[in-house]
Design a protein around this nucleic acid. Structure first.
Length: 725
RNA sequence: GGGCGAUUAGCUCAGUUGGUUAGAGCGUCACAUUGACAUUGUGAAGGUCAGAGGUUCGAAUCCUCUAUCGCCCACCA
């Protein structure tokens, strides 16, 4: 009876679905199509764009679960909107990641027993570029394996020359707008790496330290964990409301060992309950003391240098390491009977995140960006709803950070980064410099001035400072675009990222976009959950708690990895559950086998015959039911993607395809097809539901859906990438 | 110290505006099955929804408190 019928099932459907046989080829096919580039899409010329700026992975990075989640969600929205007929641009790039990259390359050099100081700055920068050329695209290749449909032809690196120009221009813009200024500040200095570190680059180590109670005078006893810094004390401070000491405020005390007279000041920062309620103030070597010093106009005396050794304050201490100086000073104080008490004191010391050296706060001249005005812009953009943060609860930390913001130290003393466009005169010191650190006059300019406008004779020298990496990544939504693209592909629509960079990065992109482009860079910010271990611990390479998503891609394919990630992406933090991978594997296999069934039961010309408009004619109840459910599914999945309910969408797809379509309808169809009067219409329904399911699933599991779609008899084009959703 | 989130089946999690027997995946058990699929099908067991109190005709859902866990920010002289 059925022998005469030509079925369309071909070879290649034997056995379970094996992603390894297909994914490489499919990805290449997509690349060859050129459709990742919105300019190549065969849509109406005036089709609306849909733009997603990829959160820049560090060049030093390798794919981890966070990337897998982040980029899968982005890929879903991009693929969805592309299928909806929008000119979808997903802009990829990598971040030069100043200190992280410098550290990796230094480590490389160290293997050859070379330090960066031996080869010098210029040669070192060359080495970094070499390293970048060799390893810098690793993470992008890994994103391709995940199936990411970013426009790789537009890939940008934050140190590309075009990008660098925008960074320099931004610096000059802020300078001319008088938002940039220079000032001293205590920086977190790593004596071993020879660089200052940001707060983020610090780690803390519990240390069994001591708290020394030192008698400065009969009435003045201070408690400190760092006696060696007393050489640089310029005051003693008490709380203004502390009546025990109010009679002392305004008087002076003689600093032991050094013999200097220092004032006693009152400052709110002092906790009367800590120690004796009296604190030694060393503005040069402590952030809080620095602020107190500022408020009371105290001098700044630096006693520890950039290598962590004592400066020249007193001859017997000069050149000693800070720790040695501590012992010597304590011994000296003891001899003088000034140590009143020593308490054991467990204490968190800041250490370098790279080399674990103890951080030394030292004063140095830095560039600061005034934040109040810019922060207000970032706030009002979200307050007015021009940019929405999802889920809404993340608005609070965003507003809190911006409300309490302090000026941003944008300069860094490392070698790898955007050199600031500041040129120093060699001959003209700045008049009335408030510190012993000498500084010369400078100009701010994109190019090196041919003649020095200050002295008229010298060869000007560029400042050795580079910019904080975030200064350049804040410009990503427009600096990552060519001049012509800036008109076409700005502003974007959706930014998808993890919560830890909401302030460091997202807020800075918002005001930068408005400052330089006149418009917020995106309408929506989606903050997704963080992937943790099943035990609820943070995934971290150094702790060995990380799970490599490439493991799943290698073993089961990108679709399964994507499925597992999205299945769990409910919005809350995710305790990674391996069984979701099992689910993904089973599901892709289910799709594969259902396809095998459909294709071996429908005749080849079904694609010519079926017509979605009249498919309900003569339909059975089962036909109507499945078609109705399909319609409902498509609507809800579309809505869910647009409202970032990715996990819900995937669960609904799963439920529909497995239970409604496979378990229920496929079984009914077997009976219906035995009845000649229903055979043709049943085939049409089978074919139609399969085809529509593939489209609906494509943004989530793009590879297997494409593999099957290719083999379907059809009238339409041969890739789901641009098939109408 | 301040803020945010979580606590629902053995495990990982859903549960829209409070409304009939609280759901899924994975796991477990029983049975079935060589014509899409054993990476299967049918069915079953398993939950006083962290605890206490309150609002309500009605609470997993709203309010208060408590406990435990996690995250973020600040501080650590």
């Amino acid at each position: 009876m059925a022998e005469h019928q030509q079925h369309v099932v071909q070879e290649g459907f034997e056995g379970p679905y094996d992603a390894k046989l297909h994914e490489g080829r499919i990805y290449q096919k997509w690349m060859d199509s050129g459709f990742f580039n919105p300019d190549n899409l065969p849509f109406a010329p005036n089709a609306e764009p849909y733009i997603v700026y990829m959160p820049l992975p560090n060049v030093t990075g390798t794919l981890h679960m966070g990337h897998a989640l982040d980029n899968t969600l982005q890929d879903i929205t991009v693929r969805y909107h592309r299928m909806k007929g929008r000119k979808a641009l997903w802009l990829p790039g990598t971040d030069h990641a100043g200190i992280a990259t410098q550290f990796v390359v230094e480590k490389d050099l160290r293997k050859q027993n070379v330090s960066r100081f031996e080869i010098g700055r210029e040669r070192f920068i060359e080495k970094v570029w070499e390293w970048k050329g060799q390893y810098g695209n690793l993470i992008l290749e890994q994103l391709k394996r995940l199936g990411c449909s970013a426009d790789w032809s537009r890939t940008r690196f934050t140190m590309d020359p075009e990008y660098a120009i925008d960074v320099q221009k931004a610096f000059i813009h802020y300078y001319e707008k008088k938002l940039l200024y220079r000032d001293f500040r205590t920086v977190n200095w790593c004596p071993r790496c020879g660089t200052s570190l940001s707060e983020l680059e610090l780690e803390y180590k519990e240390e069994e330290s001591k708290l020394w109670y030192i008698k400065y005078s009969d009435e003045v006893i201070v408690a400190t964990t760092r006696p060696e810094t007393m050489l640089g004390d310029t005051a003693v401070a008490v709380n203004p409301h502390d009546e025990r000491f109010s009679h002392l405020v305004g008087t002076t005390v003689k600093l032991p060992i050094v013999g200097r007279e220092i004032p006693i000041v009152a400052d709110e920062l002092i906790d009367p309950k800590f120690g004796t309620g009296m604190v030694k103030v060393t503005p040069a070597h402590d952030g809080n003391d620095f602020e107190i010093g500022r408020r009371h106009k105290l001098p700044l005396i630096q006693v520890i240098d950039e290598r962590g050794k004592m400066k020249f304050t007193l001859p017997e201490y000069e050149g000693l390491k800070a720790a040695e100086a501590r012992e010597k000073i304590v011994a000296e104080l003891e001899k003088e009977g000034r140590i009143v008490k020593v308490e054991p004191y467990p204490h968190n010391v800041a250490i370098c995140y790279r080399c674990s050296s103890v951080i030394e706060p030292i004063p140095s001249m830095q560039w600061f960006l005034k934040m109040r005005e810019l922060a207000d812009v970032a706030m009002s953009t979200v307050q007015s709803g021009k940019t929405k943060i999802h889920p809404e609860r993340f608005e609070k930390p965003y507003f809190d950070w911006l409300t309490n913001i302090r000026d941003w130290t944008v300069s860094r003393q490392i070698w790898w980064g955007h050199r600031i466009p500041v040129w120093f005169c060699k001959n003209t010191p700045i008049a009335d410099n408030p510190n012993f650190l000498t500084q010369n006059e400078f100009v701010v300019s994109l190019e090196k001035p041919s003649t020095c406008p200050k002295c008229g004779t010298c060869e000007m020298e560029q400042s050795p400072d580079v910019l904080d990496t975030w200064f350049s990544s804040a410009l990503w939504p427009f600096a990552g675009l060519s001049e012509s693209d800036k008109k076409k592909y700005y502003p974007g629509h959706t930014l998808i990222t993890a919560r830890d960079i909401l302030n460091l990065w997202v807020a800075r992109m918002v005001y930068s976009g408005i400052e330089f482009m006149g418009e917020a860079p995106f309408q929506n910010v989606l903050i997704h959950g963080t992937i943790m271990t099943k035990e609820g611990k943070r995934m971290s390479k150094s702790l060995g708690t990380g799970i490599d998503p490439l493991k799943y891609i290698d073993e089961y394919g990108a679709d399964v990895a994507r499925f597992a990630v999205v299945w769990q992406a409910t919005g809350q933090d995710i305790r990674w559950d391996e069984t979701a991978v099992v689910g993904g594997r089973k599901f892709t296999n289910k799709i594969w086998n259902a396809t095998k069934f459909v294709l071996s039961n429908v005749s080849a010309e079904v694609s010519e015959r079926y017509d979605s408009a009249r498919i309900l004619e003569g339909a059975t109840d089962a036909d109507k039911k499945i078609l109705e459910e399909l319609k409902t599914l498509k609507v809800s999945v579309g809505n869910d993607i647009e409202s970032f309910e990715f996990s819900k969408a995937l669960h609904d797809i799963y439920e529909f395809f497995w239970h409604s379509f496979c378990d229920a309808y496929l079984e009914v169809s077997k009976e219906q097809m035995k009845d000649e009067s229903k055979k043709e219409s049943t085939e049409e329904v089978l074919y139609y539901v399969l085809l529509e399911s593939l489209k609906t699933m494509h943004p989530f599991i793009p590879f297997i859906t494409e593999v099957i779609y290719e083999r379907l008899p059809k009238k339409e084009n041969n890739t789901l990438l641009i098939t109408q959703w």
